[in-house]
Amino acid sequence: MCIGVPFQAVQTEQHKALCQRGNEQRWIDTSLVGEIEAGDWLLVFLDAAREVLSPERAQQVEEAVGAIERVMAGQSVNLDDCFKDLVEREPQLPDHLKPLLK
């Protein structure tokens, strides 16, 4: 299983960026997301950025990944606190799939 995690760019070069998540820093391939700047948030899979995130979205992803990490460590988790964007809302079908309902 591959889970994307948010990293923040600290330093950028052509097609790569030194990024940080907590105390961890690593070089991330940014070829798929185009030009970025220091301070940008990236959704990273296997050391490759797949999406540029808003700070708010990066926080949501971090909370969800943190919940998964705590559950896997056997810790108790209040999932409503970790997935606030999903609580009390109906699931939304992506726009590209809506025509298939007709």
Rank of each mutant, 00 (worst) to 15 (best):
D95C: 03
L46E: 13
I36K: 01
Q75F: 03
K102Y: 10
P6Q: 02
V10G: 10
I28N: 02
Q25R: 15
W27D: 06
F45P: 02
E35W: 06
E90Q: 14
V52F: 01
G22A: 06
I28W: 01
E35Y: 09
Q14E: 13
E24M: 05
T12S: 06
S54D: 03
F45W: 07
I3V: 15
C19R: 02
L32A: 13
F83M: 15
E13A: 09
L79T: 13
E62R: 07
Q75W: 05
Q59W: 00
Q60N: 14
V87Q: 12
K102N: 14
E69K: 12
C19K: 05
A9W: 00
D85Q: 15
V65T: 07
F83Y: 12
E24I: 10
D80Y: 05
L79D: 08
L32N: 08
R26Y: 03
M1E: 11
V44D: 00
A49G: 10
G22T: 08
Q14R: 12
Q11S: 11
A17R: 03
A48E: 14
Q59R: 13
V71G: 04
D81G: 09
Q20Y: 06
L43C: 06
A48V: 10
K102Q: 15
N23K: 12
A38E: 11
S76W: 09
A49P: 02
A64S: 10
D80R: 09
M1L: 14
D40G: 02
D80W: 04
C2E: 14
R70L: 12
S54I: 00
L79Y: 09
Q11I: 08
D40H: 07
E90H: 10
I68W: 09
E37N: 14
D29R: 10
G4H: 04
E56A: 08
P99C: 11
L43S: 12
S31I: 13
V52R: 03
V33P: 03
R89I: 07
V71Q: 06
A17N: 05
E69D: 12
R26M: 13
T30F: 01
I68F: 11
Q59P: 00
Q8H: 04
Q20W: 08
P6S: 10
K102R: 14
D80Q: 07
A67K: 03
R70N: 11
R57T: 01
Q25L: 15
P91V: 07
E24V: 08
L42S: 02
C19Q: 03
K84W: 05
D81S: 12
